[in-house]
Design a binder for these strands. Sequence first.
DNA 1: CGTTGGATTGGCT
DNA 2: GCCAATCCAACGC
Length: 209
Amino acid sequence: MSRRLPRSFYARPATEVAPELLGHVLVRRLADGTRLAARLVEVEAYEPDDPGSHAFRGMTPRNEVMFGPPGHLYVYFTYGMHFCMNAVTRSAGEGSAVLLRAGQPLTGVDAMRRRRGRDRTLDLCSGPGRFTQALGIARPENGADLVRGDAVWVERGARSEPVGIGIRVGVHDTTRAWRFWLEGDPYVSRGRPGPPSPKRRAAGPPAVR
DNA sequence: CGTTGGATTGGCT
DNA sequence: GCCAATCCAACGC
């Protein structure tokens, strides 16, 4: 039995795939053979006809991988210094993906520390830009096949925690609560729904999510 | 061709 | 909490 998630897992709407990815393990094999792995603890879904998605205005050189077959890695460069990675979902031509926002370091943690220039395990993969840096994911990995490739893939993992749901970070669209995380997990990125600030408490109890 | 701002992060107030 | 860093894709003229 294979530990790797099959193509069929990804060939569904991003909003279905995203929460199910939580608890599975992202594995990275570097060119020198070093193996790195992290448990997925936070993701976001991006669907076709979703104004918050790079695919919303159609295919461009940057987002063409999003419009390709499912089960591939879509990597993009942003803010002049960071890369973000996504698992492409649905089927070719649709333009849909799941942003991998944070993970719990499991394997090759010291190698991740060196890549990140940070010591604390909590600072290694807790954010989309940090995650790619820790795993050595950049432009060359754009389009990598997560199902048959040997650079990066996802293996089955166990999940027992409940899944938290909220609006996506940096996407001002309250109608699409497509950010999913493992409730209570310390490796979830900042911008996390933290303990209520004094201001929020004054505004009343948090809304149902 | 010029402008704008981003699916972020880290350091400083 | 605020904001600079630092590219470049997307869009308007």
